[in-house]
Simulated assay, not measured.
Amino acid sequence: MLKFYYNKRSPMARRVWRGLLEKQIEFEPIVVNLNGDQMAPEYLELNPFHHVPVIVDNGFRVIESLAILDYLEAKYPAPALIPKEPQQKATVKMVQLVSSNELLPKAISFIFKEPDSPIYIQAKQHIHTVFQFFTTTLGENLYFGGETLSLADIVAGTDIYLLAKSGFNLSEYPKLNDWYERLMEREAWVHTQLSTEEFEQFKRVFLIIQTRKIRQASRT
Rank of each mutant, 00 (worst) to 15 (best):
V32Q: 00
V32Y: 01
V32A: 01
N33S: 08
L34F: 06
L34Y: 10
N35W: 12
N35R: 06
G36F: 00
G36S: 09
D37T: 00
D37Q: 12
Q38K: 03
Q38S: 05
M39K: 05
M39S: 11
A40Y: 12
P41E: 09
P41V: 09
P41D: 08
E42T: 15
Y43F: 14
L44D: 04
L44Q: 05
E45Q: 14
L46Q: 03
N47C: 11
P48D: 02
F49A: 04
V52R: 00
V52W: 02
P53L: 02
P53E: 03
V54G: 03
I55P: 01
V56L: 12
V56I: 12
F60R: 13
R61M: 13
V62N: 07
V62W: 04
I63Q: 05
I63L: 10
S65W: 02
A67Q: 04
I68R: 00
I68G: 00
L69R: 00
D70G: 08
D70M: 10
L72I: 13
E73P: 07
A74T: 14
A74L: 14
A74Q: 14
K75L: 06
P77L: 11
A78F: 11
A78E: 15
P79C: 15
L81Q: 01
L81G: 05
P83L: 12
P83A: 06
P83F: 04
K84T: 09
E85H: 15
Q87G: 05
Q88W: 06
Q88V: 04
Q88F: 07
K89N: 10
K89E: 13
K93D: 04
M94A: 06
M94R: 07
V95A: 02
V95S: 01
V95W: 02
L97C: 03
V98M: 10
S99A: 12
S100Q: 15
N101F: 13
